[in-house]
Design a protein around this nucleic acid. Structure first.
Lengths: 184, 184
DNA sequence: ATGATTTTTTGATCTAGGTCAAAAATCATT
DNA sequence: AATGATTTTTGACCTAGATCAAAAAATCAT
């Protein structure tokens, strides 16, 4: 996790200390509901090992917004940042081990370590890039293109994700996705 | 523009000064290509009056990523943040008046005013929220739903945008959009 | 291991929205 | 105001992918 920070800022010893002190290691088993949309999201998770997903529910159906893999932060973005309710749930696709950080602790870090603000700005920049890429990829019209793009963006993890979740991520039906996989 | 900053941070007099000093007022007429994808984006525009759009070109067709209206910053996000090439173009939908800020000046501000980092973090938070909302809205399957959602999110400006741009934003054809508008 | 549950595949049919084409309306320029 | 260019609308037809249904395969719990 500290390595991830160091991609963006230089970590001073005291900041490193505070970070390690304020973070707790958690383990979830497969299929665990890590965040429920009926609560405000107060925790952010840095995935050490495993796989999670952010999804919402529409007409009783799960719609996957995106998947989160190793070395990424996961939370319900609006809920966590604005400390208000939002539509997203988070669960694990596999047994997952991650570091957990509370909003409160994060706020403390922002207040005492100005370089944390910079880290936030820079890392949000890469996130923004992902989101934009996602938006642009959703303009693909053919289901095959969508699927190919998915395989490219989730290169190392796409085979670990069940078909139903992928199809809800792509906005196509399971049947169609299954047929796409069948050919070639 | 200063008001916009004050939604997120308290503006000190010297920062206010530097900001107004480093920003220049520009006027573009309708249809002006403000940013070309063949260049790295070095400027960010705060729209005072008017309407712009961010779009890319695929198979010779323009695909609108989103529209930008009064009191918003526009730039080619990745290109501007990472100072590298990206696929997006920016043009004006109407005659537009805006404040222009260079990356260089922005960097200067980040270096000399720590509260600017905070502004960036917080305002990127709201942007992230918009993006996420967009991603979620792109999961609508029926064209009618998509259009209704568009009208809601661009409540005050949606009637100022030509049909072709709206359809490319929604990922449906002009013909379909025209028919949707015709009924009721 | 074994039966139960869940996930994936396969098949048959249907439909929303795409494509192509041309007319009508709106806009811009002299 | 007139002309040409661009945008929007309307019509006829077609296709990719949705829906419904049921079999096959994989995964899970005891």
């Amino acid at each position: 996790m500290l390595q991830h920070f160091e991609k963006y800022i230089k970590l001073s010893a005291p900041l490193k200390d505070e970070l390690t002190k304020r973070v707790t290691l958690k383990t979830f088993k497969k299929g665990h509901l890590v965040h429920n949309a009926d609560k405000v999201c107060t925790k952010s998770y840095f995935i050490q090992k495993g796989l999670m997903r952010l999804y919402s529910i529409k007409d009783g159906k799960e719609i996957t917004a995106f998947f989160c893999a190793e070395n990424e932060w996961v939370n319900s973005p609006n809920s966590f940042i604005q400390q208000q309710l939002d539509i997203y749930y988070i669960d694990t696709i596999e047994a997952t081990e991650c570091y957990c950080l509370n909003v409160g602790d994060l706020v403390y870090l922002f207040e005492h370590f100005p370089e944390m603000e910079q880290y936030a700005r820079l890392s949000m920049g890469t996130n923004l890039a992902y989101y934009l890429e996602r938006i642009s990829s959703m303009h693909f019209t053919r289901a095959t293109e969508k699927y190919q793009h998915f395989c490219k963006t989730y290169q190392d993890v796409h085979h670990r994700i069940p078909l139903g979740m992928v199809s809800s991520y792509l906005g196509i039906t399971q049947e169609t996705l299954s047929r796409i996989r069948a050919e070639k």
